[in-house]
């Protein structure tokens, strides 16, 4: 009984941790999605090659070289999958180039074997593709499904990352209520995002790779996708604004205190010309950050504040060195 309970708890823990990692990581790579689409095209080529080989044999000609090219082609397709699974873009592109070379060799050999019957050979390819239409369009649908899964993972990943930032800032005492509301709004669009992707996949079930952009369903998808991207931009700006609202006045306060220290030193006859020049440069960076903040360019404002922070650390070190030196 205890062992059963323990096993159940362990399984539950594994399921929960799997769920968390699925929500926080993007496990399907861009290259794996590309491979899925490319595989549909590769299968189209394989079916076409087989149609040509049958026709050449029907004509009583030698098909051995063509069979050899076809086998090489399918081996390269397996290599392509391995490259995609290893997320090795260089190897992937190199394999595609090899496949192009094999198709070129196949074409030359096929032309020499079919002689003047090229039109009939083309017609045989068309017939074979028509016979395998459901299979081929099914492969494209599978690719679109994988793309949908990757896009859902991308959504969840960026959602989780934003949540982490908000939680951390909340702990540090920032008022994140507006950002939390915006994130909730984004999370509310997750279901619709998946729905529009599903609707697009369904509407494009008889459309080949790259032919799914003009449908109303695809347009709905593009509209919602752009809306979500804009929402994330707004969330990013909202978080930056909340942080800058507090950080800029604090930075000004720190710099004013540093200026007091240098003024006092100067009054005591110490030469602090270099330190004051550096402090003026830092103050100027903070002023620029403030100007960018007022213009709504929060990202630039944070960048300028970071530069001010780094320069201020250097100034502190320089003053420290002077104190401990002669």
């Amino acid at each position: 009984m205890d062992v059963k309970m323990l096993s159940l708890s362990l399984m539950l823990a594994m399921l929960v941790s799997a769920g968390i990692s699925a929500a926080q990581g993007i496990t399907i790579s861009k290259l794996q999605v590309k491979y899925k689409y490319d595989y549909a095209v590769i299968e189209k080529y394989r079916i076409g090659m087989e149609a040509i080989i049958s026709y050449v044999e029907e004509l009583g000609r030698n098909s051995s070289a063509l069979i050899s090219y076809k086998n090489h082609f399918t081996t390269l397709a397996a290599d392509l999958k391995a490259a995609a699974d290893n997320n090795d873009g260089v190897s992937y592109n190199a394999t595609i180039e090899e496949m192009k070379a094999v198709v070129s060799n196949f074409r030359q050999e096929a032309r020499s074997q079919v002689g003047n019957n090229t039109e009939e050979a083309r017609s045989r390819i068309e017939t074979a593709l028509k016979e395998n239409e459901d299979y081929l369009y099914g492969l494209v649908t599978e690719a679109r499904e994988l793309r949908k899964e990757r896009n859902t993972q991308i959504f969840d990943y960026y959602d989780a990352r934003a949540k982490e930032v908000i939680d951390r800032l909340e702990v540090q005492g920032y008022d994140m209520s507006e950002a939390v509301a915006k994130l909730n709004e984004i999370e509310g669009k997750r279901g619709s995002f998946i729905e529009v992707m599903n609707a697009t996949i369904q509407a494009c079930s008889d459309k080949w790779v790259g032919e799914c952009k003009e449908t109303p369903e695809a347009e709905n998808y593009f509209e919602l996708r752009d809306e979500i991207i804009e929402d994330f931009k707004e969330l990013r700006d909202l978080i930056l604004k909340t942080v800058l609202d507090t950080t800029i006045p604090r930075a000004e306060d720190v710099l004013n205190r540093a200026e007091d220290v240098l003024n006092r030193a100067e009054a005591r006859g110490i030469d602090v010309t270099a330190e004051k020049a550096k402090l003026d440069a830092i103050k100027s960076l903070v002023d620029d950050a403030k100007a960018k903040y007022e213009q709504g360019d929060y990202k630039e404002a944070i960048g300028l504040l970071r530069s001010a922070r780094d320069s201020f650390r250097e100034l502190k070190e320089e003053v420290k060195a002077r104190r401990s030196g002669a």
Partner: peptide
């Protein structure tokens, strides 16, 4: 000697990125 310059310009991590969908 110059008194110590204290304080820190504190900037918390705010890295919220915008997703790039496939």
């Amino acid at each position: 000697k110059v008194s110590e310059v204290t304080g820190e310009i504190e900037i918390p991590e705010t890295e919220v990125e915008v997703p790039r969908f496939e």
